[in-house]
């Protein structure tokens, strides 16, 4: 089926991008491969009928947050010699995989024991802007306001931390 093919394609892109993020030495290469993961995840959201989340994933995550990270990486002008040496990187990676593999297997087993879910047809307005918006502004109003305060606090905090114009550093 077409949707299954798309699912496999997006999954392969997401996992390969994530593996690239973990394996690349230079953070710029890692950021580029992480963008691939984010775009593949947006495709997975689209396959799950989450239209609004699909758009926001592309605009906010792959657009705004990743361009902020890449901007900072370029701003610091990282050369090869600035990077941490990480001699035993692959040793640590193998160790990390050995530590995490049982957790992953346990989680996979738990996930696969969930009650059966055949491919149902989602309702007409499922995941659209209107439906999510109504939910957001009725049942989730208080968390929404708290998130707005959080964004304001992080804005002020980032300016205070990175600005530091008054002190003579």
């Amino acid at each position: 089926m077409f949707a299954d093919g798309l699912f496999i394609l997006f999954t392969v892109f997401a996992v390969v991008g994530a593996a690239g993020l973990v394996l690349f030495k230079h953070p710029m290469n890692g950021a580029m491969s992480f963008v691939v993961t984010l775009i593949a995840l947006a495709g997975l959201y689209a396959l799950l009928n989450a239209k609004l989340i699909f758009a926001i994933q592309l605009i906010v995550y792959a657009g705004a947050i990743m361009s902020l990270i890449i901007f900072i990486i370029m701003f610091l002008n990282i050369q090869e010699e600035d990077l941490p040496a990480e001699e035993g990187r692959f040793k640590y990676l193998i160790g990390g995989v050995i530590v995490v593999a049982p957790v992953g297997m346990l989680l996979t087993k738990a996930v696969n024991s969930l009650p059966g879910s055949e491919a149902t047809i989602a309702g007409a307005g499922f995941g659209g802007v209107k439906e999510v918006g109504v939910k957001l502004f009725t049942e989730w109003l208080l968390p929404f306001e708290i998130v707005s305060i959080l964004l304001l606090v992080s804005l002020v905090g980032a300016v205070v931390l990175a600005g530091k114009r008054g002190t003579n550093k």
């Binding site: 973990v22 953070p27 890692g30 990270i69 990480e86």
Partner: peptide, 10 residues
Amino acid sequence: SRRNVFTVFM
């Protein structure tokens, strides 16, 4: 397993 602060963050 990584020590680069950007990679950890991502």
